[in-house]
Amino acid sequence: MSSGDHTAHVHRDDYGSRMGMWLFLFTELILFGGLFLIYAVYRFMYPTEFHVAAMELDTVFGAVNTIILLTSSLTIAMSITALQRNRKTLSLVLQFATILLAISFMVNKYFEWGAKFGYGLYPGSEMLLDKPSGEILFFGLYYTMTGLHGLHVLIGIVFIGIIMYQVWIGRVHSTNYVRLESAGLYWHLVDIIWIFLFPLFYLII
């Protein structure tokens, strides 16, 4: 062990920290998993309505947001390598890039939802309630699942922001970066959820 050279013994368990983060991610799997199960059953019950309703969604918005999230996963992964190699500034730049990409994801989401709200397609709206029940269910799931995912993106922005500050002040550094790893793990999970949301909602399959 190389730690504790110039300080008193500081208890640190990176292995335990990462395991704790993974355990937390499993609870997220159950949270979103339950919603995916609801989606699966209703899709099974209303195949035609789900197909028609999916045409309402803009594939381009979904595809662009997929590319944005995949790229943000790349930048946060690279920021860990940069910090491990003791390149603090590069690591901070990559973390900042991740936050900017996350914000652009939310901006897209704002325009996408905004357009739908604009022409009266939102939960509980008259236009939606006039549709067959299968389509109402599709849009209910669409707003719930992409909304909950969007909330995770916002939390991710705050999480990475806090870690950026800690890297900046030197609390997280080249030999103590487990917090950055945890932020990365969280961010990749948000990416994986989107990997499934995109085809299930935006592609007419």
Partner: peptide, 19 residues
């Protein structure tokens, strides 16, 4: 097919990005 591709993508993220 769509879910299979999504699963492959997730596997890549899990193994490499998530170490």
């Amino acid at each position: 097919v769509a879910l299979l591709i999504a699963a492959i993508k997730s596997w890549l993220v899990l193994t490499i990005f998530m170490h």
